[in-house]
């Protein structure tokens, strides 16, 4: 069958010239939408109070970048997420390892954590303001809490899901408990931890957005709130775009980490037979 195709190929008329690669073709409909939006804005169909024109938004983005307003606020937001995420992930890992590896740890830790998990943590904002005031602390705390649970739940499940046959084998070959954890249990739970990390990143951005709605004097959320007061829909959209790009970047980071740490998986080592 492949042979007949190969033979027929030269006879095919030269229609390829106008064929656009799939990746570019997929860009056509969004591009058309943006152009329609631009046109509608100029014709007065969409008022700038509803949403600014794409060209205006891009110009604002440029202005905000050049004046340093966007980079400064971006750094503040990034710092909040970074600190909150780091603390939350660390706490989640420590708690999951403790309750994943020991029956006692599970009995002590798992029940309260499962109870807290069912709480919609964003609803804790009022309480956090009372506890931590309106500075950086409640914002970071909210991100921490948001990042902790996905990591805890996934890593705990990952540890408990490690093939008991592999654990048994490691015991036959005389691995110490520490070596067993380091060489067998943690690598075995790693894919699940990465799922948790990815999820935690998503929740972290969400927490940041919510946290920055409350009395922020800096950060992307502050930029957006400020713009709202001045009816600057262009700046609001710039802020939203930044949020989206940050989320996308963070996801790419975790995926790169996955590629590196899970390179033993068959889908990633196809054809890499040594």
């Amino acid at each position: 069958m492949s042979q007949s195709i190969a033979l027929a190929a030269p006879d095919v008329p030269v229609r390829r010239s106008w064929q656009i690669p799939l990746r570019l073709r997929r860009l056509i409909s969004p591009l058309v939408l943006v152009l329609a939006w631009e046109a509608a804005s100029h014709l007065g169909v969409i008022s700038p109070r509803t949403i600014a024109a794409p060209s205006v938004i891009m110009a604002s983005a440029w202005d905000l970048t050049v004046t340093g307003e966007l980079p400064e606020n971006l750094l503040v937001s990034l710092a909040r997420v970074a600190v909150g995420f780091a603390i939350g992930v660390s706490a989640g890992i420590v708690l999951a390892v403790l309750s994943g590896l020991s029956r006692l740890g599970e009995e002590i830790l798992d029940a309260p954590l499962q109870m807290l998990r069912t709480l919609p943590f964003l609803a804790l904002v009022p309480l956090f303001i009372l506890w931590f005031g309106i500075g950086e602390l409640p914002k970071v705390a909210l991100v921490t809490l948001g990042a902790m649970f996905p990591v805890y739940l996934n890593l705990f499940a990952g540890i408990r899901g490690v093939d008991p046959k592999l654990i048994e084998t490691a015991q036959v070959f005389g691995l110490s408990r520490l070596a067993l954890i380091r060489r067998v249990i943690l690598p075995g739970a790693l894919p699940q931890l990465l799922v948790g990390l990815r999820y935690a990143l998503g929740v972290s951005w969400l927490s940041l957005v919510v946290a920055e709605q409350i009395n922020a004097s800096a950060g992307i959320g502050h930029l957006i709130n400020d713009a709202r007061d001045f009816l600057r829909t262009d700046v609001i959209v710039v802020g939203l775009m930044v949020y989206a790009l940050l989320g996308l970047g963070a996801d790419a980071l975790v995926r790169a980490l996955e590629q590196r740490t899970l390179r033993w998986r068959p889908s990633l080592v196809s054809g890499a037979r040594a």
């Binding site: 046959k165 592999l166 036959v172 070959f173 060489r183 690598p187 075995g188 899970l262 033993w264």
Partner: peptide, 13 residues
């Protein structure tokens, strides 16, 4: 030492 019915190798090593 033991050889089991399945190889039981650590896939990540």
């Amino acid at each position: 030492t033991v050889v089991f019915q399945e190889p039981r190798l650590l896939p990540w090593a």
